[in-house]
Simulated assay, not measured.
Amino acid sequence: MLTTALTAVSFWLSFEALHDLASAHRLQGERAWAWPATVDTFIGVGELLILRASLMRRVDPWAIALTAAGSLGSIALNVAGVGVSHDPLDYVTAAVPPVAALLAFGVLMRQVHEFLVSRQAPVTPASEPVISTEATIEAPNIAEPEEASEAEPEVTEEPEPVTEPEEPRQELTQRDRIDQVVRTLYNVLGNRRPATRHIRQALADEGLPNSDGTCREARKRVETAEPHLKDLPDAIAA
């Protein structure tokens, strides 16, 4: 309230001094009262533009230039209206109203600015993500049961066959090898009894002893083990 009153009084005093200056220089009546507005109005317009720029959070160089031009022009013209004076206080008295008008109107705009800012909603910076206060609970992703598929037969691994460890093969003795060669001759000769010459030749091929006595003894042992071999026809007759 006091700021508004101070602003009004300061502008009135500045207008009055500029009116007197205009009247002294061939402006009369309404024109003398309108002329101060061409100077002091720049202060008000500049201050309002500064308020607008501050609300938009930017700097307006034109607003500052208008305010400075109006203030300096008003102060200079008020001081010039004093004329030649030997008392410095005359100049101070003339300069106080425009200076007070500038400062008082600036304080008033500051108060208006704070009031408007307090009424505005808080601005969320664009760089900060807006997070909802409500907790969002995502439903668990429960897969729908698929249609009953054909039951796959359970595959059971067959147990590996247990193999009994093979008994170590015993090496055949020379006698066993001789008997084996002789027994094979019965089959080679087409189920016939081999003669001594057959046995001797077969044993010689295997690098085994092949005397006549050895051949006869071997054939005897084989036929003792398998008596039916004695009944086979001799290979010589064939």
Rank of each mutant, 00 (worst) to 15 (best):
D90S: 09
G44F: 11
S132N: 14
A37I: 09
G213R: 12
Q170Y: 01
R197D: 15
P153V: 11
L66C: 02
I178H: 00
V82K: 04
E114L: 09
I137D: 10
V96P: 02
A218S: 14
Q180D: 13
D179R: 15
G73V: 03
I64T: 13
A17G: 01
E206H: 14
K230Y: 03
A135W: 06
A126N: 08
W33T: 15
I236S: 15
D60G: 06
A104K: 03
Q201G: 04
A121Q: 12
E223F: 03
G213F: 10
D20N: 13
V84S: 09
I236C: 05
A195P: 03
T133R: 10
L72C: 13
A5F: 08
W35K: 06
G81D: 04
V39A: 06
S23G: 07
V99K: 02
R192H: 14
D40C: 10
N141T: 13
L185Q: 10
D212V: 14
L189I: 02
P145N: 08
L55K: 00
P129W: 05
I137E: 14
E128A: 03
A17K: 07
T224S: 10
A34W: 06
A37M: 10
D234M: 07
P153R: 04
A238P: 01
A143T: 14
L89V: 02
